[in-house]
Amino acid sequence: MNSILLIMSVVLAVAMIAGALMAVYAKRSMAIAILAAGAVSLFASVMFLILGAPDVAMTEAAIGSGLTTFLFFFVLRRVRGGEHD
């Protein structure tokens, strides 16, 4: 049974690294960078769940993915400029 969790955590680790690299190297569009950052924290919350902490996972999903993404998009809509897509 433990090997299932091992496979999942390896896949999630790959996804988190890919998402973080995308968030850093997304040059063309700010929206993509925000989306990738949100994706990283969503994967992190599944990772916390695998590590046996459902409360941390719920907080991570709510704050890291929900609130931060909304805040970033709100600010992005206000700022505009310095972006070319």
Partner: peptide
């Protein structure tokens, strides 16, 4: 399963 519910809600809104 609570986490799955929160997850579904937040990803939809995002």
């Amino acid at each position: 399963l609570d986490v799955a519910l929160v997850y579904a809600l937040l990803s939809f809104l995002g």
